[in-house]
């Protein structure tokens, strides 16, 4: 009768097999993601258990800490937080006006905005060690030592493209009707950006800050030459500063098992810190985003 239909019927078992295979593959890769994350977290946690004491987070390294004696990594926790807040602040202050300019003053897809976006994408892809080297050269030019300030500037450079592009994407999503509504009430571009667009894009901006923060917090290569390292708490922009990634790095290099365990404990603390920051910021962003137009 209908030959095409007959053929299709004939092919059906084969299609079914392909479909189940595809489904299996999709399911496996989804499971794999969760398994990998669990494995990483478990490994870090199990390895760090012997070293996870309160003293890890409330004390700085004592004498002989790197030989397995008493102490903690408070210097690196505080140092990382100092560094990251400064760096993110710098990156944010540079990124925000730029992103607003791209999205409200420039026409959509203008050559200049395309050039800026392309540059940001390339910057995003540059390995952070390159930023580290660049920061190091800046440092020499400004006659700075390895210090909190130099570290902040370098990490800000690492974060800048991430922060800009992520904010750019969320601000681009703001419906043009909302902008038109504000314009039609007599708002200037600047007023529209500050009073309307930023409010609408607020949750996305928070996410962008989080992504940048996480990247900066975990990056070792950019601070290796620029921030230095110290066993003391940093109280000035011009002193070297300890950071968690480098704390992990130095301790893992130690031949002493106690110190290596502390490296894992530091990794656990770093992971926990990122989780904590995410949760806190998400909590506030939800509270502040109730006005968003869906």
């Amino acid at each position: 009768m209908d030959t095409a239909w007959e053929k299709a019927k004939f092919k059906r078992p084969k299609r079914k097999i392909i479909d189940s295979l595809f489904r299996l593959a999709a399911f496996s890769s989804a499971v794999l993601v969760v398994v990998i994350l669990t494995l990483i977290l478990m490994t870090i946690l199990i390895r760090s258990l012997p070293a996870l004491k309160l003293s890890m987070i409330i004390r700085t390294p004592g004498t002989g800490y790197y030989l397995g004696h008493e102490g903690g990594i408070l210097n690196a926790i505080v140092g990382s937080l100092e560094l990251i807040s400064g760096a993110t602040l710098i990156a944010f202050i540079i990124a925000l006006p730029g992103v607003i300019y791209l999205n409200t003053y420039l026409k959509k897809n203008s050559p200049f905005s395309e050039a800026v976006r392309f540059s940001l994408d390339v910057l995003w892809g540059i390995p952070s060690i390159v930023y580290g080297v660049f920061g190091f050269l800046l440092m020499l030019a400004w006659h700075l030592r390895a210090s909190l300030l130099a570290g902040m500037v370098t990490v800000a450079l690492v974060e800048l493209p991430i922060l800009s592009r992520a904010m750019d994407e969320t601000i681009r999503m703001v419906p043009s009707e909302i902008k038109e509504a504000a314009y039609s009430l007599g708002a200037s571009r600047w007023q529209t950006a500050i009073r309307v667009i930023l409010r609408q894009a607020f949750p996305g901006i928070i996410t962008a800050v989080l992504i940048a923060l996480g990247r900066g917090l975990g990056d070792a290569a950019s601070v290796l030459f620029t921030a230095g390292y110290t066993d003391r708490l940093t109280t000035s922009l011009f002193q070297p500063v300890a950071t968690l990634p480098l704390a992990i790095f130095f301790q893992l290099n130690s031949p002493y098992p106690e110190v290596q365990q502390r490296a894992y404990a530091s990794a656990a603390i770093l992971t926990f810190l990122i989780l904590l920051i995410s949760l806190v910021i998400r909590f506030f962003s939800r509270k502040l985003s109730r006005h968003k137009i869906k």
Binding site: P175, E177, I178, E180, A181, A182, Y183, S184, L185, G186, A187, R195, V196, R199, Q200, H291, K292, I293
Partner: peptide, 26 residues
């Protein structure tokens, strides 16, 4: 010029803020 005119669009487009702030925006 725009302040001389109120605009109603096809789909009402409220601003992402409170009812009060919407009216007080202008």
């Amino acid at each position: 010029i725009r302040k001389k005119m109120g605009l109603l669009s096809q789909r009402p487009q409220v601003l992402p803020m409170s009812i009060y702030d919407n009216v007080a925006f202008g």
